[in-house]
Structure formats: C-alpha cells, structure tokens
Design a protein around this nucleic acid. Structure first.
Lengths: 112, 112
DNA sequence: GTCTGATAGGTAGCGTCACAAAGTATTGCG
DNA sequence: CGCAATACTTTGTGACGCTACCTATCAGAC
C-alpha cells in the first residue's frame, strides 16, 4: 500500500472540514474521527492540521464555535454558518470538476 | 463557475505529467496542451508550473529528455523511464484511494 | 519593415498551507 | 502510580505551484 503523501490534501482540507460539520455541530476531535471513519481509514489527519484549519475557517466566518464541558473535558463545538454552507457548495463544485479532470487524465490509454 | 484555486493541484501535478508522457514522448509545451485538451479545458497550467516540474521529475530520474530542433525551434522532448512508469502506477493507486475518500466525505447526507 | 501572436523554453521570488513536534490538562484503567 | 485515550494549542518548517518576467523563432497582417 503506497502511502498518501501529505501534500495531496492541499486545498481540499477546508471542503472536508465543512462537510464534516454539515449534518451536526462537532468538536475538533470528533471531526478528525468523522473524517477517518468516513474515509474508511484512508484519511487520518493529525491534530496539528485540523485545529489550526478550524481556527482559519472561523476567522473567515465560515464556522462558529461554542465552548462546552462534557465529563470534565473542555470541548469547542463548531457549526456551519450560512457563508460556510455556501462555501461548501462551491468546494463541491470545484471538487467535481477537478476530480473529473484528473481522473480523465490519469485514465490508462486504450489498449491496442 | 467557481475558479479552481491553484493549491488544489498540489501533490497531483507529477501524476498528471507522467500520465501525459505515457503514450509517447512530448515536449513541455505539448504536455501543457495535452493536459488542457485532455481535461476539457479545466486544467490550463502555466509554463512556470510545468517546466520546473519537468526538471524536478528528470532530476528524480522519472523522465529523461532529448533536445530536438523542429522548424527552427528548440524542443526538449521528455519520455518516461522505467522508474517513471512505476511512479505513475503508484500515483494512480494513490489518486484512486484519495479521490474515493474525498468523494465519499463530500457526499451530501441522505435527505429526510 | 514592423508588429503581433503563437510556439518554445527558462528563472527568481513569493505565499500558501499542511505537517511534525512539542506542550497542557483531564479521565479512567491496570 | 503509569499509561492510554480524550481534547485542545502553538511554533517552526518545508514543499511546491504560481506570478511575473525574460529570451528566441516563425508566420501572418499591415
């Protein structure tokens, strides 16, 4: 199994984070788990990647957060804003076109 | 039409370049055209992206090059090495898993 | 003759952004 | 007590594609 190099995620992380928050509010750790299980284990993102990215998204106004304490542990629950939902739709559009293009270009040439 | 931000290509460029050279040797300019037409115009890469990337691939031993002169114009034709073909196969494997994971994670939640 | 655009190649510098690594703190289990 | 899991944070780094710019040839328009 060829390891997936980190850089391939570049530019797609925001889309994944927004999508992970679409159904329901989640805190950072839960987002990481959602991405891991939702990708069948393929994507297991380090905290140093996810937490700063969530902060960026909040600064950009795409998500908002609220502190909770559950079982003695502090949690910061994030949820999508209206801008966040719009951004997610745009990310989906970009992904559809980008992945279609790459898939087409990587297709093996017809044999013969 | 939402523009595709440059960063999303990160980590996938090598795969596309190798794939563009799979069928036949091509020079840099022809590679750019092959990617543009093969992607239906979605990917139109600047020369400042492609030429340095081809140099990197050659330094890495994945492609080799040969100078030609056609119609008074200097061309550097690149072709895959054995390592390049192996790398392309690995890139395809990574892309398949990565794109499947992202597509799954970006799928809209079931309505209702 | 001159200008423009397509063809063909090149480099320097920049900015983005995910990552590695390290740290804090709590809960629960052996 | 030691250790793993949960939960969040921050600093610094490096890879790498892009912008902007440069050289040069050839074809066609004017």
């Amino acid at each position: 199994m060829v390891p997936i190099r980190p850089e391939v995620l570049k530019g797609h992380l925001d889309a994944l984070l927004l999508a992970a928050l679409e159904d329901e509010p989640r805190h950072g750790y839960a987002v990481i788990e959602a991405l891991r299980t939702g990708s069948g284990g393929t994507l297991d993102l380090p905290t140093g990647t996810v937490y700063p990215a969530l902060h960026r998204l909040q600064s950009a106004g795409l998500i908002s957060s609220e502190w909770h304490t559950v079982g003695g542990r502090r949690r910061r629950a994030y949820q999508l804003t209206a801008s966040g939902r719009a951004a997610l739709a745009q990310h989906r559009d970009v992904w559809d076109r980008f992945s279609a293009a790459v898939t087409a270009l990587l297709a093996r040439p017809a044999p013969g």
